[in-house]
Nucleic acid binder design. Sequence first.
RNA 1: ACCCUCGUAGCUCAAUGGAUAGAGCAACGGCCUUCUAAGCCGUAGGUUGGGCGUUCGAAUCGCCCCGAGGGUGCCA
Length: 509
Amino acid sequence: MYELKIRDAVAEVTGLDDVKIGFPPPSMRGDLSTNAAMVSSTDPGRLCAALEKLEEVESAETAGPGFVNITLSPGAYAEELKLIAADPGKYGAGDRRGSILVEMVSSNPTGPLHIGHGRGGAIGDSLARMCAKLGYRVLREYYVNDTGRQMNLLGESIRCALEGRTPPADGYRGEYIKSVADELRGSSVDSGYSSRAGELILGWHLDVLKSFRITYDSVFRESRLAEEALVKKTVESLRAGNLTYEKEGALWFRSSRFGDTQDRVLRKSSGDLTYFASDCAYHLDKSRRAERFINVWGADHHGYTPRIKAFWEASGLGEKELDILLYQLVDLKREGEKVSMSTRQGEFVTLQEVLDEVGADAARFFMLMRSSDAPLEFDLELARRQNSSNPVYYVQYSHARICSVFAKASRSPGELDLKECDPGPEEYPLIKALGHFPYLLEKCVDLKAPHFMTEYLRDVATAFHKYYDTVRVIGSGSRQETRLLLLSGVKGVISSGLELLGVSAPERM
RNA sequence: ACCCUCGUAGCUCAAUGGAUAGAGCAACGGCCUUCUAAGCCGUAGGUUGGGCGUUCGAAUCGCCCCGAGGGUGCCA
């Protein structure tokens, strides 16, 4: 954890609270670099002197326009490797406190999940895994809109399918409607088919997500809000707080006072409460279940975020962090051709179909390779290809190669002798790659950007493959134990990293 | 019309205001008698859409223009 230690030392000297540690360009001397002296107008010489007091630092020098470049001591490498090899699964784990609730996917149960839902799930779940690794208590929640117009339409569409009639013009069609209808044939229809159908489809969703390695701690149904009169209560409390007004027969929330572009209707002139009112009630209820919140939403909802944030502020919840993480939609391609994604016609490619075709490993890795801000091009052919053009195999292959070395050496990572740990310059670059893991993990969580992990794992895999190519492990005499320890460390970081992405680390390929 | 996101190598994309803008794929040329060649090494590829500004320093921040996608309901 030398990177974190050095970062904290730099923070102390410069007084900055967001110190960035980077790597100097390859042509320059030094293993780590910081611009903190420039940014904080600290005398770089003073920073160098302070850093050189650390046992992890061999030397520190000023370079360029005021960067401080740090050269690590041999002891830093040895200690880091011992730390990793002693308990690879625990390396990078943090002791952060508090609870985080991650809401993700939350699809209406009116049709199958598609690839876009998968992206939201992959981002949310991986972020949740990373938060948990840093020590937070994490809750994954699924919010289900199981009431309202769309659900009524679903019920109506099922009824039509059962009675052999054509569905309403704006109703749902497609093979899955027939499947649902078949399941419900002959069951009681006292309250229509919508609620039974919704539960059935919700079950499918949770099953697909499970095979996508996403499981939930809670499923919150919108219908519960009505049952417990929570929407009414929420609206009443806004009204009592003088945050609403009546206009043209409707009740409006003064969201524009809290940063929204306009006020929003809570109760229509028809007397019905809006979907927004339900969502407020849901967020109010949810706010009691954790200290911090992350909503993972498709970018098509971005216009909706100011009003929810406005409600959050208006309800006095501003001290609890609510992050709405938006992700751009997915362009599905097959051999370079865009795959049609029309929704109501039932022609879209479902998440299940993608999983059947490329497997959960490739699907998760691909969806996490890009920044959430960028649209994702998902090429089914590439994801399915079992060769070097597929990046997920590159990372997994490094893990399999290591397992193979241990098998060949008839040793196992758990039985190595830490006292034999004595890395030299050949090992340094690879240890340095491993040593970046704790810092990178914090970066992923703090920037809510799990895609950094995919890039990092490719870097580690590259460092490993280079090492493997030039350094012989088995039969290297007195060096062998150190090298096995290093491989054990690489194996640990790769499998931890893949685990955080929800991707398997195969022992053989 | 307004708002949001994006525009970086032939393609897909990285880069939390830093140093000579980096990877992968595709192309070309090398490396298996040795722990998995799903690997490694090398070559080539750029006016970061265009312009003006802010500053020690801009792909990143501001303004204008061009282009792509999304959003703007008393729908859910």
